[in-house]
Measured scan of single mutants.
Amino acid sequence: EVTIKANLIFANGSTQTAEFKGTFEKATSEAYAYADTLKKDNGEYTVDVADKGYTLNAKFAG
């Protein structure tokens, strides 16, 4: 089991951190699915991958 950390950075400057656990593939998929649920209210996002894929920095356009 691994933990994927998602740093969510919103256009207004606020941030949120979420963690997803499971296999690498499952946890990564859940992190992206969570970011997708936030698109409606926060706009499209881009992701910078860090820490060999164990940290995802998602920046929302607003």
Rank of each mutant, 00 (worst) to 15 (best):
K26F: 11
F20P: 02
T3I: 13
D48P: 00
A6N: 01
T28Y: 12
K52S: 14
A50Q: 14
F60Y: 12
D36Q: 06
A27P: 02
V47S: 05
K59L: 11
G53V: 00
F20I: 02
E44M: 09
F20H: 02
K26C: 12
E30W: 05
A6W: 05
G62E: 07
A31C: 05
Y54S: 05
D48T: 15
D36K: 02
A58M: 15
T28G: 01
A58P: 01
L8V: 09
T55F: 05
A27I: 03
K52I: 05
F60E: 04
S29N: 12
G43R: 01
A11P: 14
D48L: 11
V2K: 05
T15Y: 12
T3E: 04
A27T: 02
F60M: 02
E19V: 13
T3Y: 06
T3P: 03
A50M: 13
G22R: 00
Y32C: 08
G43D: 02
N12Y: 05
F60D: 02
L8C: 10
Y34D: 02
A27F: 01
E1T: 12
T17K: 10
A58K: 01
A6D: 03
V49K: 07
F24C: 08
E25S: 09
Y54K: 08
Y34C: 07
K40A: 14
E25M: 09
K5H: 10
A35Y: 15
T15L: 11
A35I: 15
K5W: 08
N7A: 05
K39A: 12
E1I: 15
K59Q: 11
T23A: 07
S14V: 14
T46C: 13
V49A: 07
G22I: 02
K59N: 10
N12D: 15
D36W: 00
G43P: 01
N42G: 07
K40M: 11
N12R: 04
G62P: 07
T17M: 10
K5M: 10
Y45D: 01
K52E: 15
T46V: 12
A61I: 13
Y32Q: 04
T3R: 07
Y45I: 04
Y54Q: 06
G53C: 05
T3C: 12
Y45L: 05
L8Q: 00
G22T: 01
N7Q: 08
T37L: 13
G53T: 00
A11R: 08
T15F: 12
Y54A: 05
S29L: 14
F10E: 01
D51V: 00
K59H: 14
A31Y: 03
Y45W: 05
D41E: 14
F60N: 03
D41T: 13
V2C: 10
G53Q: 03
T37W: 11
G13N: 06
K21P: 04
K52Q: 14
A35R: 00
G43S: 01
A6K: 01
Y34N: 02
S14D: 13
N57F: 09
F10C: 06
T55C: 07
G13S: 05
F24K: 08
Y54N: 06
F10Y: 06
L8H: 02
K59Y: 15
K21W: 10
A61G: 13
E1S: 11
D51N: 06
T46E: 10
A11W: 09
K52L: 13
D51W: 00
N7G: 01
F20N: 01
